[in-house]
Design a protein around this nucleic acid. Structure first.
Lengths: 356, 356
DNA sequence: CCGCAGTGTCGAACCGGTTCGACACTGCCT
DNA sequence: AGGCAGTGTCGAACCGGTTCGACACTGCGG
């Protein structure tokens, strides 16, 4: 019934619960942490006091004393012409897993990722760092190596020294897509990749997939038309039309470009085509993406959530276990999985060139 | 040329730069912060030492001393049946703006938002909190009020006491959509909202828009068919087909359901309809969403990035300025804006019921 | 009876900053 | 000459935890 309880506004410290339990601060600390043996009676009194007073240790003080923050840094990197919402699954993979392991996540979306990295590591705000969307020659990497804090990457850089790397195996993904089509009997395919400047900026995954598609197509005797597509509407729709016009004999379409995948339904309808009857289609994007959008296309999962999860697990192991700290660094490329949603089939004589 | 420099691995503290500059720790602190007058000569020596040794203050220590962390908490809330990627724009609005104001962002995606909130506030990890996707009767709110830390919400709860609230004015958005259609001459409309369990869970924005559409339609003498649509494919596509079958005289479609917006292009093509020739369409979603997807539909902007930004600005003002701390709390509803992308027009006699 | 190991507790130091009060010094006014 | 205000610096305390070493006490074996 006390209208204002804020005379006791001061937050409760370990000193408060120590005196409430009639012991010293150090004893209270040991009672709570269990790092030394404490009589069950005292332990009980301390626990009761802590519960009654609503004690929560001050994170800053604990970080100062233990040199551990229980926070990991998450450096997202966004680019104008990339499909930003796809990034959310990586972020959630990291954040959910971190929490599961007792860590919180400091999200940094700053454009200047290198400076941000320096800031959060040198001020000891975090125990380790996950880098998303890592480029071939990522400017954040030298900083990370200098920081002396463990780091895990999602995305395969040119130089993997001193960090743990996780990524989809895009080479295998390319082969998987081509072989799937080849097995069905397709002999002429179109590949639409991300825009060329994504590659120039160092988005190696684009050409990792593309190169392997090109090679595998050659190996299988498949005619392939590979292009970089735009990343926005309506340009990408028009680009698809032009492609289908230009290669009427192509019976299959491979997409490594979310915008193209999103535009495709309309394009197909406008041309009176049906997948897989007139054209077989395989995409490369996340399951969630496919569920929400009008894309019942067979696809190679991008495994975003899983990659974020793996990165965090490895990172946390390095942070917490003294032995793991010096484990050899690894590069882990996830085997791609093809989810068949029925948009591929045997090519028919009435190819896509023929309007119904 | 020293192969191993890690003999000096210990991070540099203010004590190090103090002795390097030949002054006391307190003088070094004042020289760096400028909170007391310091001779230009000493100030210079300290600054040089700090730069040379690469000094960055330890965040934990500073937080402990100043009772300010320069971090804000961001509580995202995800639900199975909501369109998660749309959330990213809110998150980036918060994170970008926070950084601009000198704050970092602790992202919490935990399912149990209330517990997460208690954890980060009572351990003093953050100076304040932004809550996303706030529900009518949000369980996080009582916790936030008890926490004694300022909070800003994106989403309008039933009880706005003690917090600053920002949201799109969904009532106005509903009226805007209806009036736009009415002005063009439409007299029978269909509204597809989010699934019903979003409403049951407390997603008030769904019925805020729906109610206002219903009312305004009644006021304008418009016949309205309002339904809750599914949130995934292919169900929502089928639902659209059924709706169009059932109401052949309807000439306009209002969408407050991202999945429906994504499915619509295919549905229209399958029925041989063109917007706006055969059917006028208005959506409610973000500009970015429209840019990336095959959705050249007129839409009411959801203003996600802007809402996140506003919430942070207000929050930071309350955190930093002693006067602002006790300012009256406000509810700010953003006026909706209709972006005309040409998917609405005058209804034609050859309504959508007539197959071409 | 002595020494010793084991158990439970305490005091003090430490982590790395910030901030308050004291104080020495200078220059100015009366 | 004495008092005073202003300037620049320092020492010490403090924020709230953790942890190390010391120590008192108990029970045991020799």
């Amino acid at each position: 019934m006390t209208e204002r309880t804020d005379q006791a506004e001061r937050t409760v410290t370990i000193g408060d619960i120590a005196s409430a339990a009639g012991v010293s601060r150090s004893t209270a600390s040991y009672a709570l942490s269990g790092k030394r043996s404490i009589s069950t009676e005292v332990r009980q009194r301390v626990a009761d006091a802590a519960r009654e007073l609503g004690y929560t240790p001050n994170a800053g003080a604990r970080a100062l004393a233990t040199a551990q923050t229980k926070v990991i840094g998450l450096l997202a990197q966004f680019h104008e012409d990339e499909f930003a919402p796809a990034m959310l699954q990586y972020i959630l993979g990291v954040s959910d897993t971190a929490r599961e392991l007792g860590y919180d996540t400091l999200l940094v979306s700053e454009a200047d990722g290198a400076r941000a990295l320096a800031r959060i590591t040198s001020s000891r705000m975090v125990d380790g760092v996950v880098l998303l969307n890592v480029a071939q020659d990522d400017p954040r990497l030298p900083l990370l190596r200098a920081a002396g804090q463990p780091g895990a990457l999602v995305g395969l850089p040119g130089d993997c020294d001193g960090v743990d790397v996780f990524d989809l195996d895009f080479e295998a993904a390319g082969r998987l897509m081509v072989d799937h089509m080849h097995r069905l009997g397709h002999r002429e395919l179109i590949l639409v990749s991300q825009p060329e400047h994504v590659v120039e900026r160092g988005g190696a995954y684009v050409w990792r997939l593309q190169d392997s598609v090109v090679q595998q197509a050659a190996a299988r005797g498949i005619r392939l038309h590979a292009v970089f597509g735009p990343s926005g509407q309506p340009e990408v729709g028009r680009a698809l039309h032009r492609l289908l016009d230009a290669h009427p004999a192509a019976t299959g379409l491979l997409l490594n470009n979310e915008a193209a995948a999103a535009a495709l339904p309309s394009v197909l309808h406008e041309r009176g085509l049906r997948a897989p009857r007139d054209l077989s289609v395989i995409g490369r994007y996340s399951d969630e993406f496919a569920r929400m959008f009008s894309l019942p296309y067979s696809a190679v999962e991008s495994a975003a959530h899983r990659l974020g999860e793996l990165a965090v697990r490895r990172l946390v192991r390095r942070v917490t276990s003294a032995e793991a700290r010096t484990d050899p660094y690894t590069v882990e490329l996830l085997a791609p999985e093809l989810t068949d949603r029925g948009s591929t089939g045997r090519p028919t004589p009435t190819a896509q060139g023929e309007t119904p």
